[in-house]
Amino acid sequence: MNSAIRTQSLSKRFGRTAAVDGLDLAVPEGAIYALVGPNGAGKTTIIKMLMNIFPPTAGHAEVLGVDSRKLAGKAFSRIGYVSENQEMPEWMTAGSMLDYYRPFYPTWDRALERQLVRQFDLPLTRKLKHLSRGMRMKAAFASSLAYRPSLIVLDEPFTGLDPLVRDELIEGLIERAPETTIFLSSHDLAEIESFSSHVGYLEQGRLLFSEEMSVLSNRFREVTVTLDSPAPLPENLPPAWLQPQTADCVLRFVDSDFSEDRTARELAERFPTARNIAFDPMPLRAIFLAVAKAGRSRASSQQDSATVKENAA
């Protein structure tokens, strides 16, 4: 399958800080790809490099087959970009903004524009600066969907919006999904889960995983084990077990590489007195939190060991 977006060792440094570090990413055509990660992970930086808003420090990126550094002018007639902090021509009304953008796009669909205006209930005669945040976002969506772009790039599009507006925007996106690739970054994991086909998890500028949503959902399980008697955590737990903890006779952890047979076998080896084992599927939000917390505790333990080594030296 062709990739709408492909990056190779893409990196961006701001002074001494590596915002994105050696990113290898492939977004298949037709996918709805959600890039998730904690604040400061580098999601917006990646999107801005892809959109040639600023250049990468190293590496390479292709967007719809075009080198991201050369992405300009006409190439944007196939790309729709909406960002939470994007400026808009505030002095225009929503209607005059659509009128202004229309001639820039040979594929602008007036019927679709009218449909989006109706669907989003856009007040065409009001100036953008007088619109609520939700309405402005709807206007941005309408102006980025009406020309049927091959790729829609969304940077935190749902942040700060009420659930009703979010639903309306997602509905608008899903209607476009069959004909386009959607690449979005978001913290709104519940909504993403409902319509994303692929997900990538970014932490400290590095992509920890990138896979289809169904594979991810199958890979993560919350495991609850009831033991005969309280037992301490053994030291040689598999690395795929995240956040293991015991309370009285109950052991809980997240298995990030779940396979029922293997996990059961590994549990039996380490906890022979286990009485009851439950494998619960996890929502994306829970997976995200588990991975994020595990990443933080890993980073802090690495820091601690580095400090110990320094002190010893």
């Binding site: 002018g73 006409k74 944007f76 790309i79 960002s83 400026e87 808009m88």
Partner: peptide, 13 residues
Amino acid sequence: GDTQFWLTRPYDW
């Protein structure tokens, strides 16, 4: 800056 509306529109410089 990096937030201007026209940067990601088909503007030819």
